[in-house]
Design a protein around this nucleic acid. Structure first.
Lengths: 219, 219
DNA sequence: CCACAAATGGGGACATCACCTGATTTACTT
DNA sequence: AAGTAAATCAGGTGATGTCCCCATTTGTGG
């Protein structure tokens, strides 16, 4: 096909999985792993820097979850193909991933062959969904077209607020969050303030509690 | 060393991880993957059937968890070496694994080199624990050998401290906790201080996080 | 083009908390 | 009877967080 190998980046917080995938992809003559990331933010940075052909992305990662990372990357470089590689087989994750711009969605219970098939398809510009989930997604996708009025408090949060909430939930203090996101301490405090107002919570602990309850925290 | 390759079985519910590990181990001339299992029950069956030199075991698997599987296997064939490969880095899992008879414990965030090192050590009859967890565990484990006393940090907490921790986890502030328990604000602060010292945590959020993780919060 | 929301930041008052120094009382163990 | 751990409380300092005020920039939709 191509003379050049396709350049791939792997984003997953489990090093041993990344190394395994590398070894797996190393067996292929058409693919080459050029970078790795162990959290969402790093994934965005590496993707924008290396501009790989394909990005394999886990969903639950520290610091920034996969969905946000996908949005960020796709916004700036829609040509970078992204395949979600996760354990979640429920609709909400699949839909959220697709809406964020993912080109493929495969489960960690997939085998080598399916894995390569997904990569091949996505690199050719097609989409790929694991057979286990494709069924339920299509109906949900079609159904989700007409109605749209969930509007829970959760839905009123901006993506940045969710990002801060996740970090608060992981126990970071404002100073650390500010340094991590390269924004002012005041801004973090402001987001936190807005979060507490929207959620009607009044302590850091309550925010943490909420974040964990919402499944925002990886750990 | 040996003329024959060491025979290894991998038990993990994520196929892609198993395949990745196989590819990784395939690079070694001394190791050979002879079997796989995707849940605990299967792991027991395969292990007893193939009697491998080494078993790599995930902890969270369908049907039967890794701990139970380890106990079962070790009961019948103590000579089969078992390394736990998991995402959990909390003491309780480590201790439970060791008590069940595991010979090694490594995290999925370990890299290739550490992974091979662990395998090599365990195959030579030694034990191996990931550096990230070895510190806190070794003391607790060794200590737990002679005297029956505190096995985990958790066990060093007094009942009052657990009571405060629960309330912290539910998002109450010190003033509220004090009123609730009819004690001084200072006393609540002291308990919190002791808790943080014992648990090596440094923010209210981190305490909350810990409390929830420990299942202390009902809600 | 204008309005609005989202994200960014600053100032400042005040509350809360983290972390240290002590202390006393009670109760259980040796 | 002495020793020890648990639980209670006090004082203090500096860090952190809460919650108001305000502003600017950017993008998106009417």
């Amino acid at each position: 096909m191509d003379k050049e190998k396709k350049r791939i980046v792997i984003a997953d917080d489990h090093t041993i999985l990344r190394e395994g995938l590398k070894a797996l992809l190393y067996l292929s003559t058409e693919l080459e792993v050029v970078g790795e990331a162990e959290d969402g933010r790093e994934a965005v940075r590496i993707a924008l820097e290396l501009k790989p052909d394909l990005l394999l992305m886990d969903l639950s990662m520290p610091r920034m979850n996969g969905i946000e990372a996908i949005k960020e990357i796709k916004k700036q470089h829609p040509e970078i193909k992204i395949i979600v590689l996760t354990v979640y087989k429920t609709e909400e994750y699949v839909l959220a991933s697709l809406q964020a711009g993912a080109d493929g969605y495969i489960l960690k219970e997939a085998n080598h062959a399916e894995f390569l098939l997904a990569i091949k398809n996505v690199l050719m510009g097609k989409h790929y969904l694991s057979p286990e989930i494709s069924g339920k997604v299509i109906e949900g996708y079609l159904k989700g077209q007409q109605d749209q009025a969930p509007l829970t408090v959760w839905d009123t949060l901006t993506s940045r607020e969710r990002e801060i909430l996740k970090l608060v939930g992981e126990g970071y203090k404002n100073r650390e969050i500010a340094d991590d996101l390269c924004i002012s301490l005041k801004t973090v405090g402001k987001h936190r303030e807005n979060l507490m107002k929207k959620l009607d919570l009044h302590t850091a602990s309550a925010l943490t509690s909420y974040a964990i309850e919402k499944g925002l925290v990886t750990k």
